[in-house]
Design a protein around this nucleic acid. Structure first.
Lengths: 343, 343
DNA sequence: AATTGTTATCGAAGCGCTTCGATAATTGTG
DNA sequence: CACAATTATCGAAGCGCTTCGATAACAATT
């Protein structure tokens, strides 16, 4: 079984020195077109690929980046983080890096939760996806490793961050409702201290303001304890308990709650979209299977991963600590839940 | 900013040679307890960790193993493969390896679907999870890299394989029904050419035989085109269209179809578990949320990952090509869908 | 006391690559 | 045409580790 070829084999066969081969491979410095071409041919003939550990040793770089998330985020059935990871994985290939994935427990514990690649300094940078214990972030910071956060915004601290454009998504949703003639557009949401939800609420408010609509207080439910489906149900009940001047459309802060709203409507004979238009946010899988299909805002998860990688790689290249905050794109997906004409 | 310590720093500080430090770290050969202790102390003081690329270069091993699955498997909402990966990741840490994950398209294409870690020989072994294009397998084989398949059995070929114990699971399911007094126990399943489903059917048959029960043909539907929910629904319809001698219990070959069966029953006023006991297989998330909660067979996904890693690491250590076929454990989870007394 | 075996430590070579500085070949300039 | 500047190639050192073979110290056996 022949060993895989090394740079030496290539050099010998192409009748050049090791250095020249290396220069060709990394296309650096001056190499004449003839020799470059010859070396490249030999590389193809032999199927030569540089060994990453040798290269890593010489360059004092690992060629890896770390990807950290909590294991409950990773295994949740909505493949949100999985898709972010997929985007990252896709992008990283182009840059000839590898991703080392580490899942950590929700409760961080310095003695056993630290990914080995950090201890061994086997990564040139780290992506953290989703909320993790802040001590984890601190640890990475003290190691001086470039860091990018995806879908996790830490206020008061300066980290490069990739988040979806919640504001714009909300705005689009509301504009869509307005374009259908709706004027009485309600909002249902909870956990307003959560930055994403807050941005969605702001987007809602400003879109209305932009259209010259002054929302009434009883169109709005924003004191729900969290963003689960049952709270959407409760929110709808609260909202419809007040008889006077009901909204004809509702922007719900996420799909899970929107499903709850729809459930309430079904049970109370409120027809969607005829009596009430409903629009959600997130484009979870269930939003497609519910009856009627939910119109919602899609988040480009893969893009979040891609941009995350690009941002991290930039931070690795430049040595300065530029902090970038990026809002990734968001898209209205029109289905069946708000086809009504507003009244 | 002080560089991270190397083996040299440790040696100097502990007043020994590089070799001795290396021997301590890998605890090989003879080192006197005193020096060992001293070296270890210095290692802790400095926070020394060997650099994996240097080690990899010297040992001509990467210290990585590759984990390959198709991207649709990875992103499906039931986190089956994700959990297998998680188990693998958990186990690999103990052995000081890293996992490099690569997702490949369903349609294999030799020019761009080959994970980079294979081309660069940057892995010491590979795990393939779930069905992938056979050309992928062949490619790995020709590279002479140790390989373990998880949840993917290829007949006629000899690969180490980790699959759940479908036979035993089916047997347990049927025995559970029998223990509730059921004698007329039906089977609904499709895609019998699929090895897992086939094993489940065999387990069903033999469990009945073992109890001295001769199943009647019209208790059994096994010609469904695939294993999706709607086929379970259809299967139930077929089964209940024949009036004579209905089963009092059904073992459905997977939860998805079981859900379909339950839907049919609900629509046709067949009460579960009173009129009909239903048991599924897989323990998907929805099986917990359905009404009544589905009794089913749980598959230990993490264990599959763990055993997969152990098996692969064994193959890497021994140079011989021992082929191991392992059936991982499976567990009855009793919920609400077969609490009836059989008639 | 001489011989053998065991235990402990070390020096040096080598793993496959990058890169600095030296040198050689080529081209451009006045 | 002489000289400088540019382009092309190479040798050697070094990245941080493992390991072979040598040597030394010590213990056990005749």
């Amino acid at each position: 079984m022949s060993q895989r070829p090394t740079i030496k084999d290539v050099a010998k066969r192409a009748n050049v020195s090791l250095s020249t081969v290396s220069l060709v491979v990394n296309n650096k410095s001056y190499v004449s077109p003839k020799t470059r071409e010859r070396v490249e041919r030999v590389i193809n003939e032999l199927g030569y690929h540089p060994t990453s550990s040798a290269r890593g040793l010489a360059l004092r770089k690992s060629g890896n980046i770390g990807f950290i998330l909590t294991n409950d985020h990773f295994t949740q059935s909505e493949p949100f983080y999985t898709k972010i990871f997929l985007g990252a994985e896709f992008e990283i290939q182009k840059h000839n890096y590898y991703i080392l994935l580490a899942t950590i427990p929700k409760q961080f514990n310095a003695s056993n939760s630290i990914p080995r690649f950090l201890l061994e300094k086997n990564v040139d940078g780290v992506i953290v996806a989703g909320r993790v214990d802040y001590k984890m972030i601190e640890f990475i910071e003290t190691m001086g490793i470039p860091l990018v956060l995806i879908d996790y915004k830490i206020s008061n601290r300066q980290y490069s961050t990739i988040v979806m454009n919640n504001y714009k998504g909300a705005e689009q949703a509301v504009k869509h409702l307005i374009s259908h003639g709706h004027k009485k557009i309600g909002f249902i949401g909870g956990e307003l201290q959560h930055p994403s939800i807050k941005q969605r609420y702001i987007g809602y408010s400003e879109a209305l303001a932009g259209a010259g609509i002054q929302p009434e207080n009883n169109w709005i439910v924003k004191d729900l304890p969290d963003t689960r489906q049952m709270n959407g149900y409760d929110g709808a009940r609260k909202l419809f308990s007040k008889k006077e001047c009901r909204p004809t459309a509702i922007f719900v802060a996420n799909d899970a709650m929107a499903l709850g709203v729809m459930k309430y409507c079904k049970e109370n004979n409120i027809k969607i979209p005829d009596d009430l238009a409903v629009i959600g946010f997130d484009n979870i899988e269930a939003s497609y299977y519910v009856e009627p299909k939910l119109t919602t805002i899609d988040v480009n998860k893969e893009e979040m991963g891609i941009i995350g990688v690009q941002t991290l790689l930039n931070s690795i290249k430049e040595k300065t600590d530029i902090v970038r905050n990026i809002h990734t794109s968001v898209e209205l997906v029109i289905r069946e839940s708000c086809n009504s004409k507003g009244c």
